[in-house]
Simulated scan of single mutants.
Amino acid sequence: MRSSKGLPVLLSFSLITTALLSGCASERPPVNIVNQPAPDGLPLGATRGPVKGTLTPEETKAQFISLKANEYTVKKGDTLWSIANHFLKDPYYWPEIWYDNPEIKNPHKIYPGDKIGIMYIGGKPRLGIAMRPHIRYETLPPAISAIPLEDLKPFLSYDQIMSEKQLESAPYVLANRNQTTTTSFGDVVYARPALTENSNTFSILGKGKPLVDPVTGDFLGYRAIYKGQAEVMHRGDPTTLRITKSAREIMDGDRVLPVISEPFNKDVTPSIPAVPIDAVVIDIPDAITQVATYQVVIINAGSNNGLVPGDMLRISKPGQIVSDKYTTNPKELAKNAEPEGFEIPSPPRVKLPDFPIGTAMVFRVYDRAALALVVQTKRPVRIGDLLQTPTAD
């Protein structure tokens, strides 16, 4: 059960044992990831503690950058995470540390002009609305959102993750009136089969690269890349459309789909996933090698894994695997010895610990993949980085 006042209780379920490496000496697993699973089903050297359900007063205090921080006045353009990062070291603890002050109307919503401060409740420091100057008015300004909605508009309204069947069955741009290779704003295009939806406004999407789960090798779908928007001029087969918005060059073969009507729920409650999530960044849209704060990543976990919009995940760099050239432990050397006929044993390989670098918030969820916003990071986030349920340190 999720709650805006605390972290959800961890639901237990069996974990799949990680596939083990095999083969020649150069492919042997590190010595701290041995061929026997730990009691919790994870390889040795990759254990994780339980999800923290309730912070003690000492742990709560440790989450604050400073317990003497002055009150913060919310400004237009602020987001939940800009405020969380002002006070907290780890913003994913916001749901437990935020205090729904009963003396404030709608304390779970934050408005420009509100003063956020530190208060002690039951001996624990908490964050809450210390004063709402606008309470005397019947109409408040729009509440701030958890994330910068304007920056994410293409991902919230247009970009999608689609199966090959969904893409192949969608209507497509057959040709354009000018008979050019590409089209853009103001040009006229023709689509087949006939567009039968009631809507007169359609998105034009290009087929992105296939998304593949690096752990299982499973195909997860394609990123359907938003290229523009078009209005119906004349219905029929083919349907005539005029390009009214152009974000990228539109080409013959691009797919034509109704504009997504499902808006992002800006009032979504930030939460810790109710189940352990162990995901990997598989794509970084509109970036070459890395992304930073307030940019988007695609991960190989979705609703089938228990994710919902608003879930917060810890971003970590996977520990490298290094050769230990200095060990004299005979068991390790024997375990990694070369085949018979070679006198010099190879050094054992050791996996260094993963280390956290930031936090991400899931905002759009598909069956086996999800889009997440990096809300805080100390280092650039790259493909292969880990996104996991925050655990007790």
Rank of each mutant, 00 (worst) to 15 (best):
R2E: 13
S4H: 14
K5H: 14
P8W: 13
L10F: 09
L10Y: 06
S12K: 15
L20P: 10
L21C: 04
G23R: 01
S26F: 10
S26P: 04
E27A: 14
R28D: 03
V31G: 04
N35K: 15
A38Q: 02
P39V: 08
D40Y: 05
L42H: 06
P43C: 00
A46S: 15
E59M: 15
K61C: 10
S66C: 15
L67V: 08
A69L: 13
K76L: 15
D78Q: 03
T79Q: 06
N85I: 11
Y92P: 05
Y93W: 08
W94C: 02
N101L: 10
I104Q: 09
K105N: 13
K105A: 11
N106E: 14
K109H: 09
I110K: 05
K115V: 12
I121Q: 14
G122Y: 03
G123W: 01
G128C: 12
A130P: 15
R132Y: 06
H134Y: 13
Y137M: 12
A143K: 14
I144K: 12
I144R: 03
I144A: 11
A146G: 11
A146H: 12
L149K: 07
E150N: 10
E150F: 05
L152P: 02
L152R: 01
F155T: 00
D159N: 08
Q160K: 14
M162V: 07
Q166C: 00
Q166Y: 04
S169N: 04
S169G: 04
Y172Q: 12
V173F: 09
A175C: 10
R177P: 10
F185D: 09
Y190W: 07
T201N: 11
L211V: 08
V212M: 06
P214K: 06
V215M: 12
L220A: 01
L220M: 08
Y222F: 11
A224M: 04
I225C: 07
Y226W: 09
Y226L: 01
G228P: 09
Q229D: 14
Q229W: 12
V232N: 05
R235M: 10
T240M: 14
I243G: 05
A247N: 08
R248I: 09
R255T: 15
L257K: 13
V259H: 12
F264W: 07
V275N: 05
V275S: 11
D278Q: 07
A279R: 01
D283H: 06
D283Y: 01
P285M: 02
P285R: 00
A287V: 00
T289L: 09
T289P: 00
V291G: 03
A292Y: 00
Y294M: 01
Q295Y: 01
I298G: 02
N300R: 06
S303R: 11
M312Y: 12
R314D: 08
K317S: 15
P318M: 13
Q320F: 13
Y326Q: 11
N329I: 12
P330D: 00
E332L: 14
E332I: 07
E332D: 10
E332R: 14
E338G: 02
E340L: 15
G341H: 06
P347F: 06
P348M: 11
K351N: 12
P353I: 05
D354V: 04
D354I: 12
A360C: 02
M361G: 00
M361D: 04
F363N: 03
V365H: 08
A370T: 02
Q376G: 03
K378W: 07
R379C: 07
D385F: 14
D393C: 14
